[in-house]
């Protein structure tokens, strides 16, 4: 257990309010929660990568960052136009 892992535990607790946002309420509200989750998950994965001392796994937070931006755009468009 090092300081990165401690930090990741603290950031992981931030997923609980995200769950509260994403699992109830209107679709718009959930989308906001989802975007927040994308950000927090990116940070969490970076912290875990550092905590495990495996910088080679840094591809994963990169993927989350790119994909959550793309997915957020697509979801917003569908909520606005098609659904």
């Amino acid at each position: 257990m090092n300081v990165w892992l401690l930090a990741s535990c603290a950031v992981g607790l931030c997923l609980v309010p995200c769950a509260a946002m994403c699992l109830q309420g209107s679709p718009e509200r959930r989308l906001v929660g989802l975007e927040m989750t994308g950000t927090i998950v990116t940070l969490l994965l970076v912290l875990l990568t550092m905590g495990f001392h495996r910088p080679i796994l840094m591809d994963l937070p990169l993927t989350v960052a790119i994909m959550s931006l793309a997915a957020g755009l697509v979801f917003a468009r569908f909520l606005e136009k098609q659904l």
Partner: peptide, 13 residues
């Protein structure tokens, strides 16, 4: 899957 999600962005934008 990552490559395939790129044209969806074209559809969006």
């Amino acid at each position: 899957v990552i490559i395939a999600s790129a044209p969806m962005l074209v559809y969006v934008a």
